[in-house]
Design a protein around this nucleic acid. Structure first.
Lengths: 234, 234
DNA sequence: CAGTGGTCTAGACCACTCC
DNA sequence: GAGTGGTCTAGACCACTGT
């Protein structure tokens, strides 16, 4: 058993999270919900106020109450798994492997040569989708010296980041975060207008001294932001 | 002007944030606050419920309502000081104070009201320069409840972030990082083309439960990036 | 200017828990 | 058992805003 205002809240929340009421959709007026649940207006109001607090709903006098536009947050301080993040937001994840090849490190590129070590690199490009809409573009190099089993994985089934988090332990990572304007290729891939601001996340991951993988992920700025919560360094 | 339940909330909050009512202290019963403010119980209840939500108060049936014990967190990152960063790169730092005013929190803005506490906000806008070229635009609100001495500082001499880092100890911060296209005003201020991708860094900083300052910093994407280096969380 | 949400009132009954 | 908070009711007046 639970309280009435929580049931009303859950009722609305479920319709939003299930996609039944998409962003921008007008939810029933307070008096309609009063009739539907047979209760006082304060009770409906309390339920909706909680959803406003949670950022799921915005209210406008005279206009009504509307499902808020979603924004996805990710912690800066964890290595993000895009699939997990998409699914946390009750959106359906899928991905497309755009490119996969094995190659040697470019001789003049010190960073690549350090990553490759004594072996080859596996180079991948993929597109992450949320509800069949492009969510992020990813370019990745994996060191076959550090993760030889990557050679045998079908990355069109498991996204590379998800597989790596599971299969290859890491001890240290470095993020570089910047803003870029989408060029034509990125705009096409992400289905956004050229020149739209995007968040670029570059990450290098090590296991001990061994360089495991480098990745560049590009997110449309309107869809994604990073969150870091922390305390002063000792 | 503000609502009664917010005034009651502010009244209680101020006593907690000032240390007048330490953690574990029992706050007045609902019926006492009803008498003190001459209002209905629901109004008092709404005020206290918001403080429970904010984690400032815990309630026990029959026992009463008590000031909550503050949380503790593990250290991880650092709050950047733009002056220090510019100077680290061997560029000459300067800044311009564009706006300074004292005002009350916007009643409908819960985040601002939490920041303000029982006092006013100091609102600042400034432009950070590296070698006399614009480097970042900053909008900042400082809680005069948390940092009353900010009222007397000449921020055209010391940049607000630098002063705060020195003058006001903090225990917790939260970054939100996103990519945005520069609008006309930002483009003018930063001397870049409109629509250029910029990095938006929003930071909230607390001392214990007390909200100290909020800041929005906008950097041209081409000039700036953020680096975070870390190890897996325990 | 009609209709929405924002806020408040003055009650009520109940569950829990400390004394 | 007495007193707290948890929840809910059935009203009310007001501010704002879209038509």
């Amino acid at each position: 058993m639970t309280t009435l205002n929580r049931r009303i809240r859950a009722h609305i929340e479920q319709r939003i999270l299930s996609g039944d009421w998409p962003p921008g959709h007008r939810i029933p007026f307070e008096h309609e919900l009063m009739a539907e649940f047979g209760c006082a207006r304060m009770t409906v109001n309390k339920a909706i106020a909680a959803l406003v607090d949670a950022g799921l709903i915005v209210r406008r006098r005279r206009g009504g109450s509307f499902v808020a536009e979603p924004r996805v947050h990710a912690p800066v301080l964890a290595v993000p798994d895009i699939r997990a993040e998409v699914e946390t937001r009750s959106r359906r994840y899928s991905h497309k492997l755009l490119m996969r090849r094995r190659r040697t490190a470019v001789a003049g590129n010190a960073v690549e040569r350090q990553l490759a070590g004594a072996a080859d690199l596996l180079e991948l490009e993929c597109l992450h989708m949320a509800d069949d809409r492009p969510f992020a573009f990813e370019e990745r190099q994996i060191s076959l010296a550090a993760a030889p089993s990557a050679e045998d994985v079908d990355f069109s089934v498991t996204p590379p980041g998800t597989w790596l988090l599971d299969a290859v332990p890491w001890t240290e990572a470095e993020h570089r975060i910047a803003a870029i304007n989408a060029d034509k290729r990125i705009a096409d891939l992400l289905d956004i207008k050229p020149h739209t601001a995007c968040l670029l996340v570059e990450r290098r991951t090590w296991r001990g001294e061994v360089d495991v993988t480098h990745v560049r992920q590009i997110f449309p700025g309107s869809d994604y932001d990073l969150i870091a919560r922390f305390t002063p360094k000792s």
